[in-house]
Nucleic acid binder design. Structure first.
Length: 772
RNA sequence: GGGCCGGUGGUCUAAUGGUAGGACGCUGCCCUUACGAGGCAGAGGUUCCAGGUUCGAGUCCUGGCCGGCCCACCA
């Protein structure tokens, strides 16, 4: 026996060699054809090591989508970009250099961010290349390039002209750490402990004390009303009267309002500007004048009296202490409170009024729901994630940010009338450091000069036009075929892309959406640096190779579910590569032949192969790689290798045409079926044995092979024989003197006789074995 | 409070209403000429609970319980 594949196992070092070949041959170059499959690849954000192992798995699966589409006969447009705008890199840069944005000039800060990004980006591209991603690395784009930012600004100007942009001062989420307004989509919630403090207020008219429970005693100075529930019989007499704020002595009205829940706290609630969005709503509903108690530095304002200038936490502690000393605190309860945090910095946000630019979105919710219904979802259940979010949108999208590393808002304000002037679209504008391309105000005609806008856009303004950017050179690519993404950014990237592209083009930006779950740790816990359960994928990739990693990713969880990450499981998955290699190695010892007529055993395995192909195609159609990867593993390990190959061996050694044909036929099909998931090992074997790249092939089609053999019966028969030999302490090739073979399996009696070393065989009803 | 997803051997995961499979781990045996990073065999399950529909339920329905995520005005 002389196998063409010499080595005893797959060597992952060969992956490098293949990468070189693929690049040299330009194997994955986009060649526009009749059937185009385009992918709105998520531009990864290079936020530094370790790269999340779930993200690495995510990108391997996106690559599987591209490879699947190629093998289905599509021309695949698979771009790749790097997302470089916004807060994460600013925070990274601030940490890296130990500075704060305000400490250096804007030019200097931008330079530092750019250099951080360049390092991180190079590393990230290299990992993606090594994972075998078949995207267009030669033409990768950056979301902070002049061209990309010009497009973001252009789309803003278009939306402005459509009347969808307006400026307003309203209470907004504000992160003191990042120093900017945030959209609801950038706010996350976390249960954090806090004190629920019961404070005594005096009722002016009756002189009685009432108790008010609050988690925000420092906002006492911003209280404009006190509410009780109209159904609450304890407090029926209070509405219409006035409560006197302790410490401040100011009087506020007591109202009846269902917002006060009788069962919570004392049943009486104070309404302040602004403890939460209930307060915002009530201030608007009741027409209360707002009192600004917190300034943009996160400190109490002059209205707080003795607490002015203190930070929020400090003021809270102090006011509780003061109230306690005056005997005005009845009791304190520890409470887990759902605290709103800045998604990036994890700092609690405050609601403070700021003047910002808004993009209308509440007028478009009906259209968004319609698009959600029309999209093809993989898996179908993920549609609900988007609908949930759409149903919770109540305010327009604030798009201006008080940060530096982002796309500039292209506006200049007239120094005379103060009104905004926008440039013509098409160029990348930097109003904070450049003169406007016009000299007279479009509104008042004044030539008094202009003040450039200093703010930048929310980065989702950039990210949400990725389908427009990647299709910019060929409009036929729009709408994009498929958007793949993680379920954690449904409310941001997915929602905003649908919104913006709909507003700009009147079309859905893509036809299909593919949503993957999170990578969690081996106990099902979310990975986080603070828990110390983060797994760095890079050492694992280096140790076990990209194919092992990719195969693990495919087999680990069904599409859309969260998947557990552990090196042990990846290691375990890699065993299959050894198995596949050795099956191929065995077959590689025999010539590929044509067969005039197939032996019954060969027809049987080919009919089993038909079933496997159908099952794999079902998975590939759904873009659920869990299905084909598990089906292939199961088939190879439990049917093909132990039952078919073992029985065909005697004929194989004599180079029987039917056997040689069938083994190679199966192997080719297997390699083709697995190619999207494990592109390295399959291509290596395919090239060695069949002289061409598997990645230029199409998926195999199921034929209609007929067989009389019942697979279960055959497997059971083999197992019985092996078991009997075992129990007698015999070697598996020990001779069987006499065997009665069930008639159903008569057609393969010669194969069985040879494989099990049977001296004399006759047919009967049930299996009987006699040893010498 | 609402929504979505899930609850299957120690762990993880499958199963168009038709005998509950597989992987990892575990135990025992085997240097069998593709594979010891292997092979073979084996132990281990009232499929979360209670009802219902059905000839038949892990699967469908109802109601619980538990977990995860998302959303919502518990200050």
């Amino acid at each position: 026996m002389q196998p063409k594949l010499k080595e005893k196992r797959w060597d992952k070092a060969k992956e490098q060699l293949l990468l070189g070949l693929w690049e040299k041959e330009k194997l994955y170059k986009f060649r526009p054809g009749r059937k185009i499959f385009s992918i709105d690849t998520p531009p990864p954000y290079p936020s530094g090591r370790p790269w999340h192992i779930g993200a690495a798995a995510h990108y391997s699966q996106i690559d599987m989508i591209a490879r699947t589409a190629r093998m289905q006969g599509f021309s695949v447009y698979f771009p790749i970009g790097i997302d470089r705008n916004g807060l994460p890199v600013e925070l990274y840069t601030e940490r890296k250099y130990g500075i704060h944005l305000q400490d250096v000039s804007r030019e200097e800060f931008i330079k530092l961010c750019r250099s951080s990004l360049d390092d991180l980006e190079a590393e990230m591209l290299e990992i993606m290349r090594k994972m075998g991603l078949s995207c267009d690395f030669q033409n990768y784009y950056r979301t902070d390039s002049d061209e990309y930012r010009a497009l973001t600004q252009q789309t803003f100007i278009w939306l402005w002209e459509k009347g969808l942009i307006y400026e307003d001062t309203r209470p907004n989420n504000y992160c003191f750490d990042c120093g900017t307004t945030l959209a609801d989509a950038e706010v996350i919630y976390e249960e954090r402990p806090t004190w629920l403090v019961y404070i005594k207020f005096r009722v002016k008219e009756t002189g009685e004390d009432i108790l008010i429970a609050t988690t925000r005693p420092e906002l006492l100075c911003a209280c404009q009303a006190v509410a009780v529930n109209p159904q609450d019989s304890r407090y029926n007499h209070l509405p219409g009267k006035h409560a006197v704020l302790p410490l401040y002595g100011r009087e506020v009205q007591i109202i009846a309002h269902p917002v006060a829940k009788p069962e919570f706290g004392s049943g009486i609630v104070m309404i302040c500007s602004y403890g939460d969005y209930t307060d915002v709503r009530l201030f608007r509903e009741l027409g209360l004048p707002e009192i600004i108690a917190i300034n943009p530095e996160g400190k109490l304002t002059h209205v707080a009296g003795p607490y002015a200038g203190m930070r929020i936490e400090e003021a809270r502690k102090q006011i509780i202490k003061d109230l306690e000393e005056l005997g005005l605190v009845e009791k304190k309860e520890k409470l887990m409170h759902r605290t709103p945090l800045c998604e990036r910095s994890k700092t609690p946000i405050e609601i403070i009024p700021m003047r910002e630019w808004y993009l209308k979105q509440t007028d478009f919710l009906e259209e968004m729901r319609k698009i959600a219904e029309e999209l093809e979802w993989h898996p179908s259940a993920s549609k609900q994630l988007l609908l949930n979010w759409i149903n919770s949108v109540t305010l327009d999208w604030p798009v201006s940010r008080r940060r530096y590393y982002g796309t500039e808002i292209p506006i200049w304000y007239c120094k005379s009338c103060g009104k905004p002037n926008l440039p013509k679209p098409g160029k990348y504008w930097k109003p904070w450091c450049e003169d406007p391309p016009f000299s007279a105000c479009q509104h008042c005609g004044s030539r008094a000069g202009f003040e450039g806008e200093t703010r930048t856009f929310d980065t989702w303004m950039d990210s949400s036009i990725s389908p427009l950017f990647t299709s910019r050179k060929d409009r036929k690519l729009y709408p994009i075929t498929l958007r793949p993404q993680g379920k954690d950014i449904v409310r941001t990237w997915l929602y905003y892309t649908l919104l913006r592209c709909w507003q700009l083009t009147g079309k859905s930006p893509f036809k299909k959406v593919w949503i993957m779950g999170y990578g969690v740790d081996e106990h099902g816990q979310k990975m986080s640096k603070s828990k110390g359960n983060v797994i760095d994928p890079i050492p694992i990739l280096e140790k076990l190779g990209a194919d092992a990693f990719r195969f693990w990713s495919a087999t680990e969880a069904s599409l859309g579910s969260d998947f557990r990450c552990s090196e042990a499981r990846i290691q375990a998955a890699s065993k299959f590569l050894t198995k596949l290699w050795n099956v191929s190695r065995f077959i590689s010892a025999f010539p590929e032949k044509k067969a005039q007529k197939l032996e019954p055993l060969d027809s049987w395995i080919l009919s089993e192969l038909d079933k496997l192909i159908k099952e794999c195609m079902r998975g590939y159609e759904e873009l659920n790689f869990f299905v084909p990867s598990n089906a292939i593993r199961d088939w190879v390990w439990n049917i093909f290798a132990p039952h078919y190959l073992e029985l065909v061996k005697p004929r194989a050694y004599s180079e029987d045409p039917s056997a040689c044909f069938t083994m190679h036929y199966c192997l080719r099909a297997l390699l083709e079926l697995l190619a999207p998931i494990c592109p390295f090992i399959t291509d290596y074997i395919y090239r060695e044995l069949y002289g061409k790249s598997v990645h230029l092939e199409l998926f195999p089609k199921p034929a209609k092979h007929r067989t009389q053999i019942n697979t279960e019966e055959l497997i059971e028969l083999n197992s019985r024989i092996w078991k009997e030999k075992k129990e007698r302490g015999l070697s598996l090739k020990a001779e069987i003197q006499e065997m009665v073979l069930p008639e159903n399996l008569a057609v393969i009696q010669d194969d069985l006789k040879a494989a099990h070393n049977v001296k004399s065989l006759r047919l009967g009803k049930e299996l009987e074995i006699k040893f010498g």
